[in-house]
């Protein structure tokens, strides 16, 4: 079971970082979401894994560690707030600049020059 969770955390992190390395805002936000999944699971796992031991007093003989759970619970809600702020920033950037690229200038030389959505805005 532990191996499943550890591999899941690893894969979620890798996918998150791969998406964050894309050059557009939307994949970046998806990547951050994946990274938050991974971080939340990791934090949760720091209480170690237990089954049938929900920390409700009087329902079991031993209980799962409640502290990481409480921390992760607020972290989940906060990461929603963060995602929402990033989203409005991405929308704002796209509407203001006419594209959603994250690179400031000098487009990478090995980039194929097909960026059809960029010019769409400026047509009358």
């Amino acid at each position: 079971m532990e191996a499943l969770v550890a591999s899941l955390i690893g894969v979620l992190t890798a996918v998150g970082i791969y998406l964050m390395l894309r050059r557009r805002s939307f994949p970046l936000i998806l990547g951050l979401t994946f990274l938050s999944y991974a971080v939340n699971l990791f934090l949760f796992a720091s209480g170690r894994l237990t089954v049938n031991a929900a920390p409700i007093i009087g329902t079991a003989d031993s209980y799962a560690d409640p502290l990481p759970q409480a921390l992760v619970l607020t972290a989940i809600v906060i990461s929603f707030g963060m995602t929402a702020v990033l989203m409005i920033m991405a929308i704002g950037g796209h509407l203001e600049a006419g594209h959603d690229r994250l690179t400031l200038d000098h487009p990478d030389e090995d980039a194929p020059q097909d960026q059809p959505d960029d010019q769409k805005w400026d047509q009358p």
Binding site: R22, R24, F26, A90, H94, D108, A111, D114
Partner: peptide
């Protein structure tokens, strides 16, 4: 409000 697809930008 965003493009519906991400263009292929890297080799």
């Amino acid at each position: 409000f965003l493009p519906k697809s991400t263009p292929l930008e890297s080799r």
